[in-house]
């Protein structure tokens, strides 16, 4: 009987394990090796041209001005985008959860919709909404007497516009998780607070937000890890421009790897990004632990 299970267990997991090993785990290990070689277009032609170069790729990455530019842009995106997205999600969740809200189901659905749209498609839409001459955003601004702005053509404003876009696209996902967190807070706590004469603002500050801590932590972590992987937004909207102001680390990896076929260097970039993501996650988890949120 038991031996039946033993064999069956392995048979049941075999297909999934095979796929994940061959197409993910083994490539990850190979990527570590690849990052220690000078794999380029010539090696793509014949492996005879391949050489072991130790940590040269990592040194090259750290010496590459463009990498620091891309890293700066990515950090900008993460540091501004994550709080903005989490704040929007929390605000939206509080509003939808409010006892005063009507048509909750509709609003929840409406605010979640951007999450299930296709990123490329909505990125193309945004590109035209923020277009300088015929874009609706500038038109609305003109109604208020403001001058038109070249949102995506300005190195200063292109990244903020992309941050706004990412927030629009993603906050609904976090909102659903925060909503679940809100529903888990026992109603009695609010009743007790009301008996003590606490107004709704006091309730929000002293009951809702503290109890929401762990949920906000989860949401913040998920959002942050995702935002470190910024790629498709600038690829579609700005192609990394203007003046490389929206070039992200992952975009740089894509350029190096699949435009120039420097697969060794690209692998090194991937590992540097991965390490940075891990480090940032560690910092956030550490901060959360001190507040008892993790």
């Amino acid at each position: 009987m038991k031996s039946d299970q033993r064999i069956a267990g392995w048979i049941f997991v075999a297909p999934a394990l095979a796929v994940i090993s061959v197409f993910f785990l083994v490539p990850v290990i190979l990527a570590a090796g690849l990052s220690l070689t000078d794999f380029d277009l010539y090696a793509l032609g014949s492996l005879k041209n391949l050489q072991f170069v130790g940590l040269d790729n990592y040194v090259a990455v750290l010496r590459m001005g463009l990498f620091w530019r891309a890293l700066g842009n990515t950090l900008y995106f993460v540091v501004a985008g994550v709080p903005l997205s989490v704040a929007a999600a929390t605000g939206a969740a509080l509003l939808v959860h409010s006892r005063l809200a009507r048509w909750r189901g509709f609003f929840r659905l409406a605010l979640f919709t951007p999450v299930v749209t296709n990123l490329v498609a909505v990125a193309v839409i945004w590109k035209y909404l923020f277009e300088k001459r015929y874009g609706i955003v500038n038109y609305v601004m003109a109604l208020f007497g403001l001058h038109p702005i070249d949102w995506l053509g300005s190195p200063r404003l292109a990244m903020p516009t992309i941050i706004l876009f990412a927030t629009w696209k993603n906050f609904g996902y976090a909102m659903i998780i925060v909503l679940a967190g809100l529903q888990a807070i026992p109603e009695e706590l609010y009743e007790a607070a009301r008996l003590d004469g606490a107004g709704s603002w006091t309730q929000l500050r002293h009951i809702t937000l503290p109890l929401l801590g762990p949920t906000l932590m989860t949401v913040g972590l998920l959002t942050m890890v995702g935002y470190f992987q910024l790629f498709a937004e600038p690829y579609v909207i700005t192609e990394g421009g203007p003046l490389q102001s929206t070039l992200s680390v992952l975009y740089l990896m894509y350029n190096q790897g699949f435009d120039w076929w420097n697969l060794g260097l690209a692998s090194a970039i991937a590992f540097v990004l991965f390490s940075l993501t891990l480090a940032a996650t560690g910092v956030l988890v550490h901060a959360g632990r001190r507040r008892g949120w993790v």
């Binding site: 993910f24 490539p27 190979l30 690849l34 690209a266 692998s267 990004l273």
Partner: peptide, 11 residues
């Protein structure tokens, strides 16, 4: 591990 790490060898 983010999926992009695997992409170069995967290709």
């Amino acid at each position: 591990i983010p999926s992009q790490v695997a992409m170069m060898p995967l290709f």
